[in-house]
Write a protein that binds this DNA or RNA. Sequence first.
DNA 1: GTGAACTGTTTGACATGTCAACGAATCTGG
DNA 2: CCAGATTCGTTGACATGTCAAACAGTTCAC
Lengths: 174, 174
Amino acid sequence: MNAPDPDLDPVVDDPGITTFGLLLEAHARLSKVLDVELRASDGITLQTYEVLLRVGRAPQGWVTMSDLADVVTLTTGGVTRLADRLEADGLVERGSCPTDRRVVHLTLTRKGRTLLRRASAHHVEALDRHLESRLDPADRCALDRSLDQLRRSCDEWRPGTAHVPADAAARAGD
Amino acid sequence: MNAPDPDLDPVVDDPGITTFGLLLEAHARLSKVLDVELRASDGITLQTYEVLLRVGRAPQGWVTMSDLADVVTLTTGGVTRLADRLEADGLVERGSCPTDRRVVHLTLTRKGRTLLRRASAHHVEALDRHLESRLDPADRCALDRSLDQLRRSCDEWRPGTAHVPADAAARAGD
DNA sequence: GTGAACTGTTTGACATGTCAACGAATCTGG
DNA sequence: CCAGATTCGTTGACATGTCAAACAGTTCAC
């Protein structure tokens, strides 16, 4: 009574589903590996590293909470809590913006800066092992191009841009 | 006092960091878009869709909790709770395995099957708009190849493969 | 100027995931 | 056949993220 539905196969074998599935899995597996190695070598998560990196290489040496929310793909509420933890760990500092008193400037502490430099060496080495050395150099360019294209085209998209049938939104029930 | 550290630049501009950053962002943005559209068209999250898809196209019509944990990249504890919610929504059912009484078989209910079929149509269409139509056909192949390669090489990896402290390597076998 | 609309951040209530400990079922080698 | 090691799934305690409401500061139009 529960054999795979033949009606389903034409639709679930779509090449787009395959590519997207590969994207999901490659992302998950690579992130997991890099996270585990970063914890082992520097005692921080991949997410913490990403924050340190974004703050550390910001042109002025700081980012706002909203900036950060965008690059780490969290809500601003999530970033508030993330910043709380990193500040408690002494890696970043909150500061106020001289030109807009709503804004919070996040900067690296000395400790954060040192840690970023140390972790970067390990992280780059890990990326070499898991990413660079595994890819065909020709495919590498196409990979960068494709990913950038996807990122860009999703940024353009806004809810409602899609031709979702008007009745579908109403019928969203279960 | 907090200008970007010149010492940092050589290391944070590594091409591997760039590619990995693109992977993170492309994944996050594309997932977000597809999730929003799936919610609008069928009232389910992308994660729910992924589960329905995996269960629905499993060769025997069912998957175990551990199988599912692997493909959706959650711990088994997380899958227990995910299955609880989907079962409460009437989309999947737990069943027992005739040959191993520890194992739980997850199958689609009729409702889950219907929903999967309906959502698949919308999802495939969304993938066409956001993925297929955006990519250069030649790059598409390279993208699939690269992602598959990354996924595969991460699967081979085991903690300890890297040059991490010896006590971490001691736990290598499983 | 001043009120309305908007933006940036925080917060409480809640959703969702992890981790480690656990019980039950299964395997394995004497 | 049995003791120990292993595997599968669940659970409690806790970590982390979302959502919407709230608040302060800013901008805009009149």
